[in-house]
Design a protein around this nucleic acid. Structure first.
Lengths: 308, 308
DNA sequence: ATGAAAGCGCTAACAA
DNA sequence: TTGTTAGCGCTTTCAT
C-alpha cells in the first residue's frame, strides 16, 4: 500500500457495476464483457478489482477506497451515486453503455439503431400489435407495467434507447406507442422474463410479438410461452438482445453485440496511456440475428393468401 | 491508498490463479468458483481483486503490490513462485485445491476418493483397458504422453490425486498402471481434450474407456470420438470431472463438485475474522454422476451372454 | 557507491 | 467539541 501511495500507481483497474458482485459471474453478457476487459488488463500486467456496489446500498465508500489507477463503469444508471463518486476521483475513467458525459471516454453500441433494425424486421413480417419486456429502468424496484413517462425518463441509457428505437420504428407504421404494454423487471433473470411475459400477455392477449431487451429475459419468455401452450413462432414471435450462446442454442431471433470486444475496448482505452487530450468514443457494430423464434403472425399470413 | 495504508485495511480480497486473468471468465468451473467467492465478498462489503499471474511470467511483483486484506489461492501448482510470494505476505490466506501446507486454511474436495469412485464404476462395467487425458501437471508445457515419474511428481495437487485415485482403483483389479497411456495438455480447452484423446487412441486403439480429469477435456474428447466414427458409449466410454452445465447437457458421466460452494467457503473462511487460532480445512462432498457416455465395453457385454 | 531524510494523503490519538 | 500532530511503509531525492 505504501508503495502504491508513494508511486501513485496501484497496478489495478477498477470495475464498477451496480449489481451484486456475483452478478459479474452469473450473467453471460457480463461474463463476456469481463473476459474482454481481463484480456486488456493481463496484456498490461494490471489487476482487475471488482468494486462492490450493490443497487440497494448507497455506500459510496467502496469507490473511494478502491486502490486503482482507473475505472471502467459498466451499465449503471446515469444517476447512480457510485458513478458520481467515480467521476469525482482524479483517475482516468471509461464508461460503457452510458450516455455521453462529455468529459470521459466511452464504449458502447448504437442501441437505438440496433433495436430499430430488429423492429423493422418484425414490421416487415407483419407485426403491429406487440408487447415489450425490459430490464430495470431506474434505481427503484418497479416490477410491473411501465408508464410512458417512466420509459422516457429511464435512467439506464441502454434500456431507454432500445425502447425508443422500438417506438420510433413502430411509429413509422402507425403504431401508437402508448397502447403498447411494456413490463419492467428489476432482477435480470429468466424468471423475471417469464413473469413479465405473463404480465404482458395478460394485458393484451392479442399481441403477435414479444420483444425483450435482453436474451436472458427472452429465454424466460420462451419458457412462459411454452407453459401457456403458445407455439413460437407460429402463435407468438419472441426476440431477445445480446447474442449470448444460450440464445443461439435456442434459435432466438436477437441482436448480437460484441460483448468481449466491448470489454477489451474499454480496457484498452483506459490503459492506453497516450492520447488523453479529448474524450474518445468507441461505438461497436451490432448484427441482427434472425433465428427460429420470429415469423409472420398468423393473421398476416392469412392476409397474404386471401388478400386484405 | 493513504487511507488503506493508515488503517491497514484495503477493503478487498485478492484472488491468485496462475492463469491468464481472462481464464477466470472462460472456464465454467472457474466462473462458478468465482461466483461463490464474489457472494462471500459482497456479503462482507469487500472488493475482489483478480491478481495477474500468468503461468509464463515469473513476475511476482503483482502479488507484492496487490492492495488486499487477504488472498484466496485457486488451483496453482504447489511450487508456484506466486504462491510463495503470497505466503510471505503477512495477510490471511486460504488455498483451494492445494496440498495441506500446515499453516494456512484450506478448501477442497477429496479428489482421490472421487476419482476412485468413478474408476470403480467403470471397473464394474467391465473396463480394464483404459486411457487418461489430464490437465497440466507442472509449470512447464508438456503436451504429450506422460511418464509414470511425471505423474507422481506432478505439482498440481488436483491432477496428481485424481490420477492416483485411478491408479489405486485399477491396481485392485490387476491393471498395471505403467501400461496405461496418459496424455497431458497445458491449455485447458476442448481443443486440448480432442488432441489428447487422439493421442491416447493412437497409442492404444484397444482402450474401452477414456477418463478425462475435467469436463472441458472430456467434451473435447467426445468431439474427437465422433470425428473418428466411434460411438459413445458403445465403442468408447468417456468420462469427465467437475459437473459443469455443458457436461450435464451432453449427458456426460462425470463427478460433480460444488464449485460455487467451494468459492463461497473460501471467501467465508478468509473473511471470518474470528477463529484464527489454527488452520481450518473444509472438504466438500462430491457426487458421481452416471450419464450416457459410459457403458459396458462390447467385449464385456458379449462375455456376459456367451460366458468367458 | 551507500546512507539519511522527506513526504505520498490520510486517520487516530492526543491536546486544548 | 474542535484542532493539531505523528506516523502508516515505502520510494525518491539529496548528501555524503
Amino acid at each position: 500500500m505504501a508503495r502504491s501511495l508513494r508511486t501513485r500507481k496501484a497496478g489495478a483497474v477498477g470495475l464498477l457495476l451496480t449489481e451484486n458482485l456475483s452478478y459479474a459471474f452469473r450473467d453471460p453478457a457480463a461474463i463476456g464483457f469481463l473476459e474482454g476487459l481481463a484480456l486488456a488488463c493481463e496484456d498490461a500486467g494490471q489487476g482487475l478489482l471488482l468494486v462492490p456496489a450493490s443497487p440497494e446500498r448507497e455506500d459510496v465508500a467502496s469507490v473511494h477506497r478502491a486502490g486503482v489507477d482507473g475505472f471502467v463503469v459498466y451499465s449503471v444508471p446515469d444517476d447512480d451515486p457510485h458513478l458520481a463518486a467515480v467521476l469525482e476521483r482524479p483517475v482516468p475513467t471509461v464508461v460503457c453503455d452510458q450516455p455521453d458525459l462529455g468529459n470521459v471516454d466511452r464504449v458502447g453500441i448504437d442501441d437505438q439503431a440496433a433495436m430499430t433494425e430488429l423492429a423493422r424486421h418484425l414490421i416487415s413480417l407483419g407485426h403491429r400489435r406487440i408487447g415489450v419486456v425490459c430490464m430495470r429502468l431506474a434505481r427503484d424496484r418497479n416490477d410491473g407495467l411501465v408508464t410512458l413517462d417512466r420509459q422516457r425518463s429511464a435512467h439506464f441509457h441502454v434500456q431507454r434507447n432500445r425502447i425508443s428505437g422500438l417506438e420510433q420504428a413502430f411509429a413509422e407504421v402507425g403504431v401508437d406507442w402508448s397502447t403498447v404494454p411494456v413490463a419492467e423487471r428489476f432482477d435480470h433473470t429468466t424468471a423475471s422474463g417469464a413473469s413479465a411475459a405473463a404480465q404482458v400477455l395478460e394485458r393484451d392477449p392479442q399481441i403477435t410479438a414479444l420483444i425483450c431487451t435482453s436474451d436472458i429475459l427472452a429465454l424466460g419468455a420462451l419458457g412462459e410461452a411454452q407453459r401457456r401452450g403458445l407455439r413460437v413462432p407460429q402463435d407468438l414471435t419472441i426476440t431477445g438482445f445480446d447474442g449470448i450462446r444460450e440464445a443461439e442454442q435456442a434459435g432466438l431471433t436477437t441482436v448480437r453485440q460484441p460483448v468481449l470486444e466491448k470489454g477489451r475496448a474499454a480496457g484498452k482505452l483506459l490503459l492506453d496511456s497516450g492520447e488523453r487530450s479529448r474524450p474518445r468514443s468507441v461505438v461497436l457494430p451490432t448484427e441482427l440475428v434472425v433465428g427460429e423464434t420470429s415469423a409472420a403472425p398468423r393473421g398476416a399470413a392469412e392476409e397474404r393468401w386471401f388478400g386484405p
